[in-house]
Amino acid sequence: MMSCEEKETGSYGITTFQQVVSSCCGAVLTSILVTPLDVVKVRLQAQSNPSLKGKSFLDSDGLTDHVYLYENGTGKTWHKTSGRFTGMLDAFAKIVQREGVKALWSGLPPSLAVSVPTTVIYFTCYDQLRDALVYKIEDNDYIPLIAGGIARLFSATIISPVEMIRTRMQSRRLTYTQLLACISTNVANNGWLSLWKGWGPTVLRDVPFSALYWYNYEYFKMSLCKKSSLHEPTFLIIFSSGAAAGSIAATLTLPFDVIKTHRQTELWELDVTRSPQKTSASVWEVMKRIVVENGFTGLFTGIIPRLTKIAPACAIMISTYEYGKTFFRRLNKDKDMKNY
Results as ranks from 00 to 15, higher is better:
44 L>I: 15
66 H>P: 03
156 A>E: 00
158 I>N: 06
160 S>C: 15
214 W>K: 13
11 S>P: 08
199 W>E: 01
38 D>S: 14
4 C>M: 05
81 T>Y: 07
316 I>N: 00
125 C>P: 01
282 S>A: 10
176 Y>D: 15
198 G>I: 00
212 L>S: 07
150 I>L: 02
234 T>L: 05
248 I>D: 01
3 S>L: 07
199 W>G: 02
249 A>K: 06
34 V>A: 05
269 E>A: 07
197 K>I: 04
230 L>H: 12
207 V>C: 04
227 K>A: 12
86 T>I: 12
251 T>S: 13
99 E>V: 07
111 S>R: 03
117 P>W: 09
227 K>I: 03
305 P>N: 13
314 C>Q: 09
38 D>Y: 06
311 A>F: 09
186 N>E: 15
100 G>M: 10
215 Y>G: 04
197 K>V: 05
152 R>C: 03
169 M>D: 00
317 M>D: 03
105 W>H: 04
148 G>N: 00
183 I>P: 00
183 I>H: 02
145 L>H: 02
47 Q>L: 09
124 T>M: 01
316 I>H: 01
134 V>Y: 05
243 A>F: 04
200 G>E: 11
74 T>S: 12
117 P>D: 06
282 S>D: 11
103 A>E: 14
276 P>G: 01
146 I>K: 01
30 T>V: 13
242 G>P: 01
259 I>E: 08
238 I>C: 04
124 T>Y: 01
75 G>H: 02
257 D>G: 14
9 T>M: 11
318 I>E: 03
169 M>S: 04
313 A>C: 06
149 G>V: 03
